[in-house]
């Protein structure tokens, strides 16, 4: 309780993190209440060819697309897709990456080395290329995007957790619980994991931003969920042939992507400071 109050207070002191928090909260709310907030909730799947490519107006805040659907409403529904993709694929990456990192970091030996080499191989190939390759092979569908993203992003968590576990393992309190007779499971899950959790939280927040960006690129390349999905990347891809006249067509989804990615990055950077154990634990480290 105390901790939560402390974190909230910190947020209000750190304006940048607060901006990030507001953007992300807004995104989540929009995704949940898309059905209520959208001015034309039906426009995700219905078309009005008569109204196609109209500029922003009171009826259509962000204008309409080539099918005459309301871009504003489609962006709201797109937020749902974006959130789903980001949450599930980042969640899967964490589930794969963190345990591998913990095990490889805690134990020494060929198995740890093997795990780390495998993650290195994944890291060596540029993320986007790997994701494209996987999505290409599996075909355009939202599940495949999620799979492609999870498979490419888990090594980031492995690397981070591996390094932090290595450092944490040298701390006396870890050695002390081993000396007390604690089992490796106990040491890893109850002592090490909580102590490195702030790094994981920050990495996860930042990871959301980059996953959303990659998902948009996949959508843009036509590897995302198929039409008529309101996925943001796909929308931008569709808009290309109508540029520069229908400027609103690409601008608003683009802005949405930009805002959300920036939101996660600001939040992540803010959390880095807020969760810094030395600030939290208020140790007298300054000298």
């Amino acid at each position: 309780m105390e901790t939560i109050r402390f974190i909230l207070r910190k947020f209000f002191e750190d304006k940048v993190a607060l901006v990030g928090l507001v953007i992300i909260t807004a995104l989540v709310l929009v995704a949940i209440f898309a059905g209520v907030l959208a001015t034309h909730p039906g426009d995700v799947s219905t078309f009005h060819p008569a109204d196609r490519l109209q500029g922003p107006s009171l009826a259509h805040f962000f204008g309409t697309d080539r099918m005459g659907s309301d871009i504003f409403s489609r962006i709201l529904f797109g937020a749902r897709i974006t959130i789903t993709i980001a949450v599930i694929s980042v969640g899967l990456s964490v589930l794969i990456g963190v345990p591998i990192g913990l095990l490889a970091g805690y134990y020494n030996g060929w198995f740890s080395d093997l795990l780390m080499r495998v993650s290195d191989i994944f890291l060596a190939v540029p993320q986007i290329v790997l994701a494209i390759a996987i999505a290409q092979t599996l075909g355009p569908a939202i599940e495949n995007v999620i799979l492609a993203l999870s498979l490419t992003y888990w090594p980031f968590w492995t690397r981070l957790v591996y390094a932090e576990t290595r450092a944490c393992k040298n701390e006396t309190f870890v050695e002390a619980s081993v000396a007390l007779g604690a089992s490796p499971f106990r040491v890893i899950v109850l002592h090490i994991l909580p102590n490195i959790s702030s790094g994981i939280i920050v990495r996860t927040t930042l990871g959301m931003g980059s996953t959303i960006l990659t998902a948009a690129v996949l959508g843009f390349l036509g590897l995302g969920p198929p039409a008529p999905s309101p996925e943001w990347g796909r929308t931008i891809a569709e808009s290309r042939q109508y540029l520069p006249n229908a400027w609103w067509y690409a601008t608003f989804p683009g802005l949405a992507i930009f805002m959300v990615v920036m939101g996660f990055n600001l939040l992540g950077d803010g959390l880095r400071d807020i969760l810094d154990p030395r600030i939290r634990r208020s140790k007298s480290n300054d000298r």
Binding site: E171, T172, F173, P277, R281
Partner: peptide
């Protein structure tokens, strides 16, 4: 059993 020389560091923060 072993009682550590650095008592602060031997307790999980």
């Amino acid at each position: 059993q072993y009682a550590y020389q650095d008592p602060g560091a031997s307790l999980d923060p």
